[in-house]
């Protein structure tokens, strides 16, 4: 993933998948996966955080444009883009020297699972809290976070199982 074209391709692929497919799934009339956050997991690790923050913000804002949600997607994806390196340090024990050689493919499933689950749940929780924008239906926020996170994670792990080459 050192080729910038692949990142641009990933950006538009995730945007259009999210807007035209995942926003229309509505399982049991309310549950949607938010798979565009995979951009944050797959973007290569770099010491300079600014490009990732900027592109994530732009991706979130584009999803907002299509789904009329103000800046909720942009807000929540920028948070997980910012705290990503912190969790990389905790779960994978990687320091700044290891960043160029880091790849999710070479890590064990347990570590990847912890990392992806943490970031997804944080993102979904912030997203649904802002979408609700009051403390009134807080149980709804929690149940939405729970079910949507499961949906997103199942899709992510199925997707990564399909698209990784077995060598």
């Amino acid at each position: 993933m050192n080729n910038p074209f692949r990142e641009i391709l990933l950006f538009f692929l995730l945007l259009f998948l999210q807007v035209f497919m995942f926003n229309n799934i509505l399982l049991f009339n309310s549950i949607n996966p938010y798979l565009y956050i995979v951009f944050v997991f797959l973007y290569p690790l770099k010491e300079n955080k600014i490009p990732l923050l900027f592109y994530s913000f732009l991706l979130g804002l584009s999803v907002d444009f299509f789904s009329d949600t103000g800046g909720i997607h942009a807000f929540s994806i920028t948070i997980i883009a910012y705290i990503r390196l912190f969790f990389v340090k905790i779960y994978f024990n990687k320091l700044e020297i290891d960043y160029p050689f880091f790849s999710l493919k070479t890590e064990s499933f347990g570590k990847i699972f912890n990392y992806v689950v943490t970031l997804t749940v944080i993102h979904h929780f912030i997203f649904f809290s802002l979408a609700n924008f009051s403390f009134h239906n807080f149980t709804n926020v929690l149940s939405n976070t729970f079910f949507s996170s499961i949906f997103t994670l199942v899709l992510y792990f199925i997707g990564s199982a399909i698209f990784t080459k077995n060598e």
């Binding site: 955080k49 923050l53 900027f54 804002l61 907002d64 009329d68 949600t69 103000g70 807000f75 920028t78």
Partner: peptide, 16 residues
């Protein structure tokens, strides 16, 4: 930079 982006997003949420 993070704070800048978040404040932009938050003001967009409020105006929306």
């Amino acid at each position: 930079f993070f704070l800048l982006l978040e404040s932009i997003a938050f003001s967009l949420i409020l105006t929306n």
